[in-house]
Every structure is written in structure tokens, then in C-alpha cells.
Amino acid sequence: MSTDTTVKANATPTYSEAFQSGVREEMTRNKGIFILGTDLQERGGHFAQVKGIAQEFGFDRVKDSPISEAAMVAAGMGSAMYGCHPIIDLNFIDFSLGAMDEIINQAAKIRFMFNKPVPLVIRATSGIALGGAHHCNSLESFFAHTAGLSLAVPSTPMDVKGLIKTALRNEDPVIFLMHKKLSGIRGEIKGDDYFVPFGKAATIKPGKDAVIISYGYSVVTANKAAQALEAEGISVEVIDLRTLYPLDTDAINAAVQKFGRVVVVDEAPLFGSITAEIAATATEANFGSLKGPIVRVGAARAPLSANPAMSEAAIPSVDSISAAVKKVMKY
């Protein structure tokens, strides 16, 4: 078994490799951590997120599962109550719908009802890419709405590693969403002692005139929009929430108070979304600081089409985000 889990200088692993790195370090430290999911042992998961870990830690700690989402989450929940710290890999978050009772009605409530923490990580790939309506649901608001669950939505390799390590030291269920369009991006990561706390947003790009608050792949799109707007003389700050629950309301409030011109972006249909929550709470707390209404950019209220142009048109783009920023700049 390899013990070389240190990160080499200047190494720029992918988003998926960053997950592997964090999991390896925590599995070495905690024998109660195991991974259960489909196609993990040989393939390493559909996004290479656990590639090589079965060979390194053994098939007892990386288990191939039948496609039984309810049993997968139940297996995680029961073993977590017993004393393990499982990572249940649901592959696509869309498949969590087959385990929604286990997640929302059971795992999230056990600590409150039975005074017993459930240290469980549910990892899944999320976000919108090609693949049609059954692989592109944005379910963040379902989970964030549920007391007892935390929700991580990293957009960089650094944050993937830092957040999964925090999740694996946490006592409670964490939904860990990795955007499918970020799987191959590269970036620096840090070593064994680097943790990203939940509930702490990061400033991706500083700005002077307005702020875009976002998470996941939308951070990338928002950043592109912000760069384009620089050329037009509009200086936009971009904030990456990194976790949706706990939500960094301090950072949101500070940004609203500083700029008064606020755009919130994600890929979920606008109605009942996280962007609605952010806009509402930010407005309640900072109404006097706002120069005008917070503008939200999200997806159409429709299932995602398999047609690439239709799919792209349904979700935020550089153009739609730029237009939203220009709208708040007119206040």
C-alpha cells in the first residue's frame, strides 16, 4: 500500500484527482472510512473520482454496489450510526431521487430524533452538461431546505480537497456535489493539513462596482462575464459560496453592503431556488444598502433538453450574466 499521499510542488491535479487526494489522506487516517458506489473498484467511478483507491486500500474499503440507491444510502446511514464514516457515491445526483426518503426523512433527522450523529458523505456529480433531462437536475434547494444536511458545491480542485477533508471530519450528513463540467479542470491543491471550512465563501475576483454571487460551474461562467465586463469598464467582484448550507451570510451581507448592486447566479430553475433564498435573505438584512433589486440569473422552468443549443439557452451564459450586471449598474 502506497503511503505517498503528499502533494508534489507545482502539482496541478484535476478536480477529480483533488477528490482522490483528500479521500486518500482521510482513509489513511480513519479506518472507518469506506466508499460504496457503482463501478468504483476497476473503473474508479464514472469521473475517475476514486481511481486507484480500491487498489491501494483494498476492495473491503471501496465497495462496488448494485444500482440500488435506497439501499446504498441506507447502507451508509446504518453503518455511520454504527461507527463508520462512509462515502456513498451516487454517481449522478439525479439518482438520489431513488433514495430521497433515506436522505431527507432518515439520515437528516436521526441526530435530532435519536441524539446520534450520522457521519455520512453522499457524493455525486451534479450540474448541467449534455445528457438530457434525467442527468441534469439541479437539486440543491431540496437538500439545503432540509434541516440536518450540509451541502458542499466546490468549483476548484483546491476547494474539492479542502471541503471533502472537512466533510470526512464532520459528524453529520454532507451532500457533496461535484459539477460534471469541472471534472477535468486543473488547479493547485494543498497538503494533508489544509481544510476548507463549510460556510466560508471565497472571493474569486475582486471588483469595485458590483458583485456576482454564485457557486459550482456558474462561478466559471460568472468569472468569464466579469472579465468581459472589465473591458467595458465595469469592475465586478465574483464570490464563490463553496457551500450552500451552512451559507456564508456574513460574506453575502458584506458584499451587498459594499456594492449595493448584486447579481446571484446558478443553474437551477429560478422558482424556489437557492438564488431566491440568497436574494430574499440579503434583501431582508440589507434593504437600505441596495441601490435596486437583486437580480437573479438561473435556468428556465423546464426539464433540460438533450439538444445542445436548447440546453445552453436554458441556463446562464456569459451574455445573460453580463446583461444582469448591466441592469444593476443602471440603478
Binding site: G32, A71, A74, S79
Partner: peptide, 22 residues
């Protein structure tokens, strides 16, 4: 106990997995 029919079987199965892992 459990308010949802069938849910306890899954939790107990998970506990059995925990017993096996540990």
C-alpha cells in the same frame, strides 16, 4: 422505530455493513 414502511430494514442492513467493516 420508523414512521416510513420498510425504512428500518435498510438502516439495520447498514448497521450490519458497519459490523462487517469494523
Amino acid at each position: 422505530g420508523n414512521g416510513i414502511v420498510g425504512a428500518g430494514v435498510g438502516i439495520a442492513m447498514g448497521a450490519a455493513l458497519g459490523i462487517q467493516v469494523l
